[in-house]
Simulated scan of single mutants.
Amino acid sequence: MFQTIPRAPLILGLAGLLPFLWGALTVLFPDLGLWTAQTLGPRFAGPYVMLFYGAVILSFMSGVLWGFAARATGTLATTGYALSVIPALWAFFMTGGGPTSAGMNLIFGFAGLLLLDLQFARWGLAPAWWMPLRLLLSAVVIACLAVGVFL
């Protein structure tokens, strides 16, 4: 699976997981969370770093999907553009109301994003390596968010 993903997207994608992983670690290890909150600030510890960064990444992914839609023409392009704004709107409207509900909504948002990724790949608008990368990254993101929600 990894050999089919170009090196730069794989490394950058894995690097993009660091805030999620850090957030999950600070939930699993409260002393690390306390140190982080005292040293870097509370926004960088626990579920809060995952929630803030998750909303940013869903918005970023809207831009990626918009770029894929730009490869299409006619009705397919229009459909692609319309679908591409859903992750950003989801992040905007669904991440309030406290860390548990925001975390659950981000989990649903990233799962929904994976379905959008699959559709854009089926339309031939995403590169062939896109789904292996997105499956890997989404699995880690959803697992980290689940740590913040359920632990």
Rank of each mutant, 00 (worst) to 15 (best):
D117S: 01
F108M: 13
W66V: 14
I5C: 04
A91N: 02
S59R: 09
F60I: 10
A77H: 10
L113F: 04
F60S: 06
W35E: 09
T39Y: 12
Q3G: 09
A111E: 04
G46S: 14
T26M: 06
V149L: 05
F110K: 08
G112M: 05
R7N: 07
L83D: 01
L21S: 06
F68S: 05
I86H: 00
L113S: 03
I142W: 01
G124A: 12
Y81T: 14
F44Y: 15
F120M: 08
F120P: 02
G63H: 07
L125R: 06
A24N: 10
L106T: 10
S59Y: 07
A121F: 11
L135Y: 07
F2K: 03
G63P: 06
A70L: 15
L12G: 03
G112P: 00
Q119A: 13
R134K: 07
C144N: 02
C144Y: 01
A121T: 12
V56L: 15
N105P: 04
T36G: 13
D117I: 02
A45W: 08
N105A: 08
I57E: 11
T4W: 00
L32W: 14
R7C: 01
M94N: 14
F92L: 15
F60G: 06
L135M: 13
A143H: 07
G103I: 01
L18H: 01
A45R: 13
L135Q: 09
N105D: 02
F68K: 08
L76A: 15
F68L: 15
W35M: 12
V141G: 09
G13F: 02
V64N: 11
G74D: 09
L114K: 03
F150H: 07
G109V: 01
G41S: 12
A70Y: 05
S101G: 00
P6K: 03
A77R: 15
A15F: 14
G80W: 12
G67I: 07
L58S: 08
A139I: 10
T78H: 12
G112A: 03
V141K: 08
L115V: 13
P42L: 07
A111R: 00
A69L: 04
G67H: 06
L133Y: 00
T4N: 10
L12R: 05
G74K: 07
G97W: 02
G16I: 08
G80P: 03
I142V: 15
G23T: 05
T73N: 15
I11Y: 12
A37E: 11
F52I: 13
P42N: 12
R7Q: 11
L125F: 02
F93Q: 05
T100G: 07
V49E: 09
L118E: 15
L51D: 06
